[in-house]
Design a binder for these strands. Structure first.
Lengths: 225, 225
DNA sequence: ATTCATCAAGTCATCAGATGACTTGATGAA
DNA sequence: TTCATCAAGTCATCTGATGACTTGATGAAT
Protein backbone atom coordinates (compact mmCIF):
# COMPACT_ATOMS: atom_id res chain seq x y z
CA UNK A 1 0.00 0.00 0.00
CA UNK A 2 0.90 3.66 0.05
CA UNK A 3 4.08 4.07 2.08
CA UNK A 4 3.78 6.48 4.97
CA UNK A 5 5.22 9.85 4.11
CA UNK A 6 8.23 10.78 6.15
CA UNK A 7 9.66 14.22 6.02
CA UNK A 8 11.70 16.50 8.16
CA UNK A 9 11.32 20.15 9.04
CA UNK A 10 14.30 21.31 7.03
CA UNK A 11 13.06 19.75 3.81
CA UNK A 12 9.62 21.15 4.34
CA UNK A 13 11.05 24.59 5.10
CA UNK A 14 13.22 24.37 2.01
CA UNK A 15 10.17 23.45 -0.06
CA UNK A 16 8.12 26.33 1.29
CA UNK A 17 10.86 28.83 0.68
CA UNK A 18 11.54 27.49 -2.79
CA UNK A 19 7.86 27.70 -3.66
CA UNK A 20 7.70 31.33 -2.58
CA UNK A 21 10.77 32.20 -4.61
CA UNK A 22 9.72 30.37 -7.75
CA UNK A 23 6.22 31.76 -7.32
CA UNK A 24 7.62 35.25 -7.50
CA UNK A 25 6.84 36.47 -3.98
CA UNK A 26 10.15 38.28 -4.14
CA UNK A 27 11.76 39.48 -7.34
CA UNK A 28 15.32 38.83 -8.44
CA UNK A 29 17.70 40.99 -6.44
CA UNK A 30 15.14 41.61 -3.74
CA UNK A 31 15.93 40.96 -0.08
CA UNK A 32 13.92 38.32 1.69
CA UNK A 33 13.00 38.49 5.41
CA UNK A 34 15.84 37.93 7.83
CA UNK A 35 16.50 34.69 9.63
CA UNK A 36 14.48 35.56 12.70
CA UNK A 37 11.47 36.57 10.61
CA UNK A 38 11.68 33.43 8.48
CA UNK A 39 11.95 31.44 11.66
CA UNK A 40 8.62 32.92 12.73
CA UNK A 41 7.00 32.62 9.32
CA UNK A 42 7.94 28.97 8.97
CA UNK A 43 7.59 28.13 12.65
CA UNK A 44 10.99 26.52 12.85
CA UNK A 45 14.19 27.45 14.65
CA UNK A 46 16.81 29.69 13.19
CA UNK A 47 19.13 26.73 12.71
CA UNK A 48 16.59 25.00 10.52
CA UNK A 49 16.03 28.20 8.55
CA UNK A 50 19.76 28.46 8.00
CA UNK A 51 19.97 24.90 6.67
CA UNK A 52 17.08 25.56 4.28
CA UNK A 53 18.58 28.81 3.08
CA UNK A 54 21.97 27.19 2.65
CA UNK A 55 20.46 24.54 0.37
CA UNK A 56 18.76 27.16 -1.77
CA UNK A 57 22.01 29.10 -1.94
CA UNK A 58 23.77 25.99 -3.17
CA UNK A 59 21.09 25.60 -5.82
CA UNK A 60 21.56 29.13 -7.04
CA UNK A 61 18.21 30.51 -5.93
CA UNK A 62 19.42 32.64 -3.02
CA UNK A 63 22.48 34.61 -2.13
CA UNK A 64 23.46 35.55 1.41
CA UNK A 65 25.57 38.54 2.31
CA UNK A 66 26.81 38.76 5.82
CA UNK A 67 25.75 41.94 7.51
CA UNK A 68 23.31 42.81 4.78
CA UNK A 69 20.74 40.11 4.22
CA UNK A 70 19.65 37.28 1.96
CA UNK A 71 18.73 38.08 -1.62
CA UNK A 72 17.00 36.31 -4.46
CA UNK A 73 19.54 35.42 -7.09
CA UNK A 74 17.30 33.56 -9.49
CA UNK A 75 13.74 32.36 -9.67
CA UNK A 76 14.52 29.51 -12.01
CA UNK A 77 14.59 26.26 -10.13
CA UNK A 78 17.05 24.25 -12.14
CA UNK A 79 17.15 21.34 -9.72
CA UNK A 80 13.41 20.78 -10.12
CA UNK A 81 13.62 21.11 -13.89
CA UNK A 82 16.35 18.53 -13.84
CA UNK A 83 14.23 16.12 -11.82
CA UNK A 84 11.35 16.46 -14.23
CA UNK A 85 13.61 15.81 -17.19
CA UNK A 86 14.88 12.70 -15.46
CA UNK A 87 11.33 11.42 -15.17
CA UNK A 88 10.65 11.65 -18.88
CA UNK A 89 11.00 8.61 -21.07
CA UNK A 90 14.18 7.23 -22.51
CA UNK A 91 13.14 8.12 -26.04
CA UNK A 92 12.50 11.74 -25.08
CA UNK A 93 15.86 12.01 -23.38
CA UNK A 94 17.63 10.46 -26.29
CA UNK A 95 15.96 12.81 -28.75
CA UNK A 96 16.85 15.82 -26.63
CA UNK A 97 20.45 14.73 -26.55
CA UNK A 98 20.31 14.17 -30.29
CA UNK A 99 19.20 17.78 -30.70
CA UNK A 100 22.40 18.78 -28.95
CA UNK A 101 24.51 16.41 -31.02
CA UNK A 102 23.12 17.84 -34.23
CA UNK A 103 23.53 21.51 -33.49
CA UNK A 104 26.87 20.97 -31.79
CA UNK A 105 28.22 19.23 -34.86
CA UNK A 106 26.99 22.09 -37.02
CA UNK A 107 28.64 24.70 -34.82
CA UNK A 108 31.78 22.61 -34.58
CA UNK A 109 32.06 22.63 -38.35
CA UNK A 110 32.04 26.42 -38.22
CA UNK A 111 34.34 26.95 -35.28
CA UNK A 112 36.60 23.99 -34.67
CA UNK A 113 40.23 24.81 -34.03
CA UNK A 114 43.10 22.62 -35.22
CA UNK A 115 43.48 21.43 -31.64
CA UNK A 116 39.84 20.35 -31.61
CA UNK A 117 40.42 18.29 -34.74
CA UNK A 118 43.48 16.60 -33.29
CA UNK A 119 41.54 15.70 -30.17
CA UNK A 120 38.51 14.38 -32.02
CA UNK A 121 40.64 12.20 -34.28
CA UNK A 122 42.58 10.84 -31.34
CA UNK A 123 39.43 9.89 -29.46
CA UNK A 124 37.90 8.46 -32.60
CA UNK A 125 40.90 6.19 -33.02
CA UNK A 126 40.74 5.08 -29.40
CA UNK A 127 37.07 4.38 -29.81
CA UNK A 128 37.83 2.18 -32.80
CA UNK A 129 40.44 0.20 -30.93
CA UNK A 130 37.99 -0.82 -28.20
CA UNK A 131 36.32 -4.08 -29.01
CA UNK A 132 32.59 -4.68 -28.81
CA UNK A 133 29.58 -2.48 -28.16
CA UNK A 134 28.75 -4.01 -24.83
CA UNK A 135 31.79 -3.32 -22.73
CA UNK A 136 32.01 -0.43 -20.32
CA UNK A 137 35.33 0.60 -21.77
CA UNK A 138 33.85 0.98 -25.23
CA UNK A 139 30.89 3.00 -23.96
CA UNK A 140 33.24 5.31 -22.11
CA UNK A 141 35.34 5.89 -25.20
CA UNK A 142 32.31 6.36 -27.40
CA UNK A 143 31.05 8.96 -24.98
CA UNK A 144 34.41 10.69 -24.81
CA UNK A 145 34.41 11.03 -28.56
CA UNK A 146 30.94 12.55 -28.69
CA UNK A 147 31.84 14.96 -25.95
CA UNK A 148 34.84 16.12 -27.91
CA UNK A 149 32.53 17.04 -30.78
CA UNK A 150 30.34 19.08 -28.45
CA UNK A 151 33.44 20.67 -26.98
CA UNK A 152 34.55 21.71 -30.46
CA UNK A 153 31.35 23.71 -30.78
CA UNK A 154 32.79 26.03 -28.15
CA UNK A 155 29.44 26.18 -26.39
CA UNK A 156 29.70 25.59 -22.66
CA UNK A 157 25.97 25.42 -22.07
CA UNK A 158 25.65 22.59 -24.55
CA UNK A 159 28.59 20.77 -22.99
CA UNK A 160 27.01 20.87 -19.55
CA UNK A 161 23.69 19.71 -20.91
CA UNK A 162 25.35 16.93 -22.80
CA UNK A 163 27.03 15.70 -19.64
CA UNK A 164 23.74 15.75 -17.84
CA UNK A 165 21.95 13.78 -20.54
CA UNK A 166 24.58 11.13 -20.87
CA UNK A 167 24.41 10.58 -17.12
CA UNK A 168 20.62 10.57 -17.07
CA UNK A 169 20.35 8.27 -20.06
CA UNK A 170 22.85 5.84 -18.59
CA UNK A 171 20.80 5.70 -15.40
CA UNK A 172 17.55 5.23 -17.26
CA UNK A 173 18.95 2.48 -19.44
CA UNK A 174 20.18 0.60 -16.41
CA UNK A 175 16.81 1.06 -14.75
CA UNK A 176 14.51 0.16 -17.62
CA UNK A 177 16.09 -2.06 -20.23
CA UNK A 178 19.16 -4.17 -20.35
CA UNK A 179 18.75 -4.98 -24.01
CA UNK A 180 21.43 -3.99 -26.42
CA UNK A 181 21.40 -0.79 -28.39
CA UNK A 182 23.12 -1.06 -31.75
CA UNK A 183 26.45 0.65 -31.62
CA UNK A 184 26.90 2.63 -34.79
CA UNK A 185 29.95 1.69 -36.71
CA UNK A 186 33.22 3.50 -36.80
CA UNK A 187 32.73 4.69 -40.35
CA UNK A 188 29.63 6.70 -39.46
CA UNK A 189 31.60 8.43 -36.73
CA UNK A 190 34.51 9.15 -39.03
CA UNK A 191 32.08 10.84 -41.39
CA UNK A 192 31.16 13.30 -38.68
CA UNK A 193 34.74 14.27 -38.09
CA UNK A 194 35.40 14.59 -41.80
CA UNK A 195 32.49 16.94 -42.25
CA UNK A 196 33.59 19.06 -39.30
CA UNK A 197 37.16 19.11 -40.57
CA UNK A 198 35.90 20.23 -43.96
CA UNK A 199 33.98 23.03 -42.26
CA UNK A 200 30.74 21.88 -43.87
CA UNK A 201 27.90 22.38 -41.36
CA UNK A 202 25.18 20.80 -43.48
CA UNK A 203 27.19 17.66 -44.07
CA UNK A 204 28.00 17.51 -40.35
CA UNK A 205 24.32 17.58 -39.50
CA UNK A 206 23.55 14.89 -42.04
CA UNK A 207 26.34 12.70 -40.72
CA UNK A 208 25.04 12.93 -37.17
CA UNK A 209 21.50 12.26 -38.27
CA UNK A 210 22.62 9.23 -40.25
CA UNK A 211 24.35 7.67 -37.28
CA UNK A 212 21.42 8.46 -34.98
CA UNK A 213 18.70 6.88 -37.07
CA UNK A 214 19.40 3.19 -36.43
CA UNK A 215 19.81 3.77 -32.69
CA UNK A 216 16.49 5.56 -32.45
CA UNK A 217 14.77 2.88 -34.49
CA UNK A 218 16.06 0.15 -32.20
CA UNK A 219 15.08 2.22 -29.18
CA UNK A 220 11.52 2.49 -30.45
CA UNK A 221 11.46 -1.27 -30.97
CA UNK A 222 12.70 -2.00 -27.47
CA UNK A 223 10.29 0.42 -25.85
CA UNK A 224 7.26 -0.72 -27.79
CA UNK A 225 7.61 -4.26 -26.51
CA UNK B 1 44.49 43.29 -9.07
CA UNK B 2 43.53 39.93 -7.69
CA UNK B 3 40.44 40.35 -5.55
CA UNK B 4 40.79 39.11 -2.00
CA UNK B 5 39.30 35.69 -1.52
CA UNK B 6 36.40 35.71 0.87
CA UNK B 7 34.98 32.44 1.97
CA UNK B 8 33.02 31.11 4.86
CA UNK B 9 33.47 28.07 7.02
CA UNK B 10 30.43 26.24 5.72
CA UNK B 11 31.53 26.45 2.11
CA UNK B 12 34.99 25.33 2.99
CA UNK B 13 33.63 22.45 5.05
CA UNK B 14 31.32 21.50 2.19
CA UNK B 15 34.26 21.56 -0.17
CA UNK B 16 36.42 19.39 2.08
CA UNK B 17 33.66 16.86 2.56
CA UNK B 18 32.83 16.77 -1.12
CA UNK B 19 36.47 16.25 -1.97
CA UNK B 20 36.72 13.30 0.41
CA UNK B 21 33.56 11.74 -1.02
CA UNK B 22 34.49 12.23 -4.67
CA UNK B 23 38.01 11.13 -3.85
CA UNK B 24 36.65 7.84 -2.63
CA UNK B 25 37.61 8.03 1.04
CA UNK B 26 34.30 6.28 1.74
CA UNK B 27 32.58 3.95 -0.68
CA UNK B 28 28.98 4.16 -1.82
CA UNK B 29 26.68 2.95 0.93
CA UNK B 30 29.32 3.39 3.57
CA UNK B 31 28.68 5.39 6.72
CA UNK B 32 30.73 8.50 7.28
CA UNK B 33 31.80 9.73 10.74
CA UNK B 34 29.07 11.22 12.87
CA UNK B 35 28.47 14.91 13.34
CA UNK B 36 30.65 15.24 16.42
CA UNK B 37 33.55 13.48 14.73
CA UNK B 38 33.23 15.58 11.57
CA UNK B 39 33.08 18.63 13.77
CA UNK B 40 36.46 17.63 15.20
CA UNK B 41 37.93 16.61 11.85
CA UNK B 42 36.94 19.85 10.17
CA UNK B 43 37.43 22.03 13.23
CA UNK B 44 34.01 23.62 12.94
CA UNK B 45 30.92 23.44 15.08
CA UNK B 46 28.23 20.82 14.66
CA UNK B 47 25.88 23.40 13.21
CA UNK B 48 28.33 24.17 10.44
CA UNK B 49 28.83 20.47 9.80
CA UNK B 50 25.09 20.03 9.54
CA UNK B 51 24.80 22.82 6.97
CA UNK B 52 27.58 21.29 4.90
CA UNK B 53 26.06 17.82 5.08
CA UNK B 54 22.63 19.20 4.20
CA UNK B 55 24.01 20.77 1.04
CA UNK B 56 25.64 17.51 -0.01
CA UNK B 57 22.40 15.67 0.69
CA UNK B 58 20.54 18.09 -1.56
CA UNK B 59 23.11 17.40 -4.25
CA UNK B 60 22.62 13.67 -4.01
CA UNK B 61 26.04 12.84 -2.62
CA UNK B 62 25.00 11.99 0.93
CA UNK B 63 21.99 10.52 2.64
CA UNK B 64 21.18 11.03 6.31
CA UNK B 65 19.13 8.60 8.37
CA UNK B 66 18.01 9.78 11.76
CA UNK B 67 19.13 7.46 14.46
CA UNK B 68 21.48 5.61 12.19
CA UNK B 69 24.03 7.87 10.54
CA UNK B 70 25.01 9.59 7.33
CA UNK B 71 25.80 7.47 4.29
CA UNK B 72 27.40 8.02 0.92
CA UNK B 73 24.76 7.84 -1.77
CA UNK B 74 26.88 8.63 -4.80
CA UNK B 75 30.41 9.68 -5.56
CA UNK B 76 29.62 11.50 -8.80
CA UNK B 77 28.41 15.04 -8.81
CA UNK B 78 26.06 15.63 -11.74
CA UNK B 79 23.22 17.48 -10.07
CA UNK B 80 24.72 20.90 -10.53
CA UNK B 81 24.70 20.62 -14.32
CA UNK B 82 21.90 23.08 -14.94
CA UNK B 83 23.31 25.48 -12.38
CA UNK B 84 26.49 25.57 -14.38
CA UNK B 85 24.41 26.13 -17.50
CA UNK B 86 22.92 29.19 -15.85
CA UNK B 87 26.38 30.62 -15.40
CA UNK B 88 27.33 30.31 -19.05
CA UNK B 89 27.03 33.26 -21.38
CA UNK B 90 23.92 34.52 -23.05
CA UNK B 91 25.10 33.47 -26.48
CA UNK B 92 25.73 29.90 -25.33
CA UNK B 93 22.32 29.69 -23.73
CA UNK B 94 20.61 31.09 -26.76
CA UNK B 95 22.37 28.64 -29.04
CA UNK B 96 21.43 25.74 -26.82
CA UNK B 97 17.83 26.81 -26.87
CA UNK B 98 18.06 27.17 -30.63
CA UNK B 99 19.19 23.55 -30.83
CA UNK B 100 15.94 22.62 -29.11
CA UNK B 101 13.90 24.90 -31.37
CA UNK B 102 15.38 23.32 -34.45
CA UNK B 103 14.94 19.69 -33.55
CA UNK B 104 11.54 20.31 -32.01
CA UNK B 105 10.31 21.90 -35.22
CA UNK B 106 11.60 18.93 -37.16
CA UNK B 107 9.88 16.44 -34.90
CA UNK B 108 6.73 18.53 -34.88
CA UNK B 109 6.59 18.32 -38.65
CA UNK B 110 6.60 14.55 -38.34
CA UNK B 111 4.21 14.16 -35.42
CA UNK B 112 1.92 17.16 -35.08
CA UNK B 113 -1.71 16.34 -34.54
CA UNK B 114 -4.57 18.44 -35.94
CA UNK B 115 -5.06 19.80 -32.43
CA UNK B 116 -1.42 20.90 -32.33
CA UNK B 117 -1.91 22.79 -35.57
CA UNK B 118 -5.01 24.54 -34.30
CA UNK B 119 -3.19 25.61 -31.18
CA UNK B 120 -0.09 26.83 -32.99
CA UNK B 121 -2.16 28.89 -35.41
CA UNK B 122 -4.20 30.39 -32.62
CA UNK B 123 -1.11 31.44 -30.69
CA UNK B 124 0.51 32.72 -33.84
CA UNK B 125 -2.48 34.96 -34.48
CA UNK B 126 -2.43 36.24 -30.91
CA UNK B 127 1.25 36.94 -31.24
CA UNK B 128 0.56 38.96 -34.37
CA UNK B 129 -2.10 41.03 -32.68
CA UNK B 130 0.25 42.16 -29.92
CA UNK B 131 1.92 45.41 -30.80
CA UNK B 132 5.64 46.06 -30.53
CA UNK B 133 8.63 43.94 -29.70
CA UNK B 134 9.35 45.60 -26.42
CA UNK B 135 6.25 44.99 -24.38
CA UNK B 136 6.01 42.21 -21.86
CA UNK B 137 2.73 41.09 -23.36
CA UNK B 138 4.34 40.54 -26.72
CA UNK B 139 7.24 38.61 -25.25
CA UNK B 140 4.84 36.39 -23.37
CA UNK B 141 2.85 35.64 -26.49
CA UNK B 142 5.95 35.08 -28.57
CA UNK B 143 7.12 32.61 -25.97
CA UNK B 144 3.75 30.88 -25.83
CA UNK B 145 3.90 30.35 -29.56
CA UNK B 146 7.37 28.84 -29.48
CA UNK B 147 6.38 26.57 -26.65
CA UNK B 148 3.45 25.31 -28.66
CA UNK B 149 5.87 24.26 -31.38
CA UNK B 150 7.98 22.35 -28.87
CA UNK B 151 4.82 20.83 -27.43
CA UNK B 152 3.83 19.62 -30.90
CA UNK B 153 7.05 17.62 -30.98
CA UNK B 154 5.54 15.44 -28.28
CA UNK B 155 8.84 15.41 -26.40
CA UNK B 156 8.46 16.17 -22.70
CA UNK B 157 12.18 16.36 -21.99
CA UNK B 158 12.58 19.06 -24.59
CA UNK B 159 9.59 20.95 -23.21
CA UNK B 160 11.07 21.00 -19.72
CA UNK B 161 14.42 22.12 -21.02
CA UNK B 162 12.78 24.78 -23.14
CA UNK B 163 11.02 26.17 -20.09
CA UNK B 164 14.29 26.22 -18.23
CA UNK B 165 16.10 28.06 -20.99
CA UNK B 166 13.47 30.68 -21.61
CA UNK B 167 13.45 31.53 -17.90
CA UNK B 168 17.23 31.47 -17.64
CA UNK B 169 17.69 33.57 -20.76
CA UNK B 170 15.17 36.11 -19.55
CA UNK B 171 17.10 36.48 -16.31
CA UNK B 172 20.42 36.74 -18.07
CA UNK B 173 19.13 39.40 -20.44
CA UNK B 174 17.82 41.46 -17.56
CA UNK B 175 21.12 41.07 -15.77
CA UNK B 176 23.50 41.82 -18.60
CA UNK B 177 21.99 43.94 -21.34
CA UNK B 178 18.92 46.05 -21.60
CA UNK B 179 19.36 46.67 -25.30
CA UNK B 180 16.75 45.49 -27.71
CA UNK B 181 16.84 42.22 -29.52
CA UNK B 182 15.22 42.32 -32.94
CA UNK B 183 11.89 40.61 -32.86
CA UNK B 184 11.57 38.47 -35.95
CA UNK B 185 8.57 39.31 -38.03
CA UNK B 186 5.32 37.48 -38.12
CA UNK B 187 5.96 36.11 -41.57
CA UNK B 188 9.01 34.16 -40.48
CA UNK B 189 6.96 32.55 -37.74
CA UNK B 190 4.14 31.71 -40.10
CA UNK B 191 6.65 29.92 -42.30
CA UNK B 192 7.49 27.60 -39.42
CA UNK B 193 3.87 26.65 -38.91
CA UNK B 194 3.35 26.13 -42.61
CA UNK B 195 6.29 23.77 -42.85
CA UNK B 196 5.08 21.80 -39.83
CA UNK B 197 1.56 21.69 -41.23
CA UNK B 198 2.93 20.40 -44.51
CA UNK B 199 4.82 17.70 -42.62
CA UNK B 200 8.09 18.79 -44.14
CA UNK B 201 10.85 18.43 -41.52
CA UNK B 202 13.62 19.91 -43.64
CA UNK B 203 11.63 23.00 -44.44
CA UNK B 204 10.70 23.34 -40.77
CA UNK B 205 14.36 23.31 -39.79
CA UNK B 206 15.20 25.89 -42.44
CA UNK B 207 12.37 28.12 -41.30
CA UNK B 208 13.55 28.07 -37.71
CA UNK B 209 17.13 28.71 -38.72
CA UNK B 210 16.04 31.62 -40.87
CA UNK B 211 14.25 33.33 -38.05
CA UNK B 212 17.08 32.65 -35.60
CA UNK B 213 19.87 34.14 -37.69
CA UNK B 214 19.13 37.86 -37.25
CA UNK B 215 18.59 37.47 -33.51
CA UNK B 216 21.91 35.70 -33.07
CA UNK B 217 23.67 38.30 -35.18
CA UNK B 218 22.29 41.12 -33.08
CA UNK B 219 23.21 39.20 -29.92
CA UNK B 220 26.81 38.92 -31.08
CA UNK B 221 26.85 42.65 -31.78
CA UNK B 222 25.48 43.55 -28.37
CA UNK B 223 27.85 41.23 -26.54
CA UNK B 224 30.93 42.32 -28.45
CA UNK B 225 30.53 45.92 -27.37
C1' DA C 1 16.97 -23.51 20.21
C1' DT C 2 13.83 -19.96 18.58
C1' DT C 3 11.02 -16.05 18.92
C1' DC C 4 9.96 -11.70 20.42
C1' DA C 5 9.40 -7.77 23.54
C1' DT C 6 12.32 -4.64 25.93
C1' DC C 7 16.15 -1.77 26.60
C1' DA C 8 20.27 1.07 26.15
C1' DA C 9 23.57 3.28 23.39
C1' DG C 10 24.44 5.85 19.37
C1' DT C 11 22.97 9.13 15.92
C1' DC C 12 20.54 12.67 13.60
C1' DA C 13 16.75 16.49 14.27
C1' DT C 14 15.58 20.50 16.36
C1' DC C 15 15.59 24.19 19.47
C1' DA C 16 17.43 28.22 22.24
C1' DG C 17 20.78 31.54 23.50
C1' DA C 18 24.97 34.04 22.90
C1' DT C 19 28.85 36.27 20.61
C1' DG C 20 31.45 37.82 16.59
C1' DA C 21 31.92 39.80 11.88
C1' DC C 22 30.23 42.48 8.45
C1' DT C 23 27.23 46.00 5.99
C1' DT C 24 24.82 50.14 5.68
C1' DG C 25 22.76 54.35 6.44
C1' DA C 26 22.82 58.22 9.74
C1' DT C 27 25.40 61.57 12.21
C1' DG C 28 28.37 65.22 12.84
C1' DA C 29 32.80 67.42 12.54
C1' DA C 30 36.25 69.33 9.35
C1' DT D 1 30.70 69.13 0.57
C1' DT D 2 33.58 65.54 2.28
C1' DC D 3 34.79 62.08 5.24
C1' DA D 4 35.53 59.61 9.60
C1' DT D 5 32.72 57.61 13.13
C1' DC D 6 28.98 55.21 14.99
C1' DA D 7 24.90 52.42 15.83
C1' DA D 8 21.53 49.33 14.24
C1' DG D 9 20.60 45.39 11.57
C1' DT D 10 22.01 41.02 9.60
C1' DC D 11 24.39 36.81 8.74
C1' DA D 12 28.25 33.53 10.70
C1' DT D 13 29.49 30.61 14.13
C1' DC D 14 29.67 28.32 18.47
C1' DT D 15 27.78 25.94 22.57
C1' DG D 16 24.60 23.26 25.17
C1' DA D 17 20.47 20.77 25.61
C1' DT D 18 16.44 17.83 24.46
C1' DG D 19 13.73 14.87 21.43
C1' DA D 20 13.12 11.22 17.87
C1' DC D 21 14.72 7.41 15.64
C1' DT D 22 17.64 3.19 14.66
C1' DT D 23 20.03 -0.77 15.91
C1' DG D 24 22.11 -4.36 18.22
C1' DA D 25 22.11 -6.67 22.73
C1' DT D 26 19.58 -8.78 26.39
C1' DG D 27 16.66 -11.93 28.42
C1' DA D 28 12.22 -14.03 29.13
C1' DA D 29 8.67 -16.92 27.04
C1' DT D 30 7.76 -20.55 23.98
Amino acid sequence: MQPAIRTNLTDSATGSLRAEIVGGRWGVGERIPNEAALSDLLSVSRGTVREAVRVLVSQGLLDTRQGSGTYVRSTVDSSAALDRVKRTGLRDQWEARAALDLEAARLAALRRTPADLVRMRLLLAERGSAASGGSDAFIRRDLAFHKSVVAASGNRAMMELYDFFTAAITETIHATIDGELPEPDQQAHAAIVDAIAAGDPDRAVSAVRAFMAPVLAQLERLLSQ
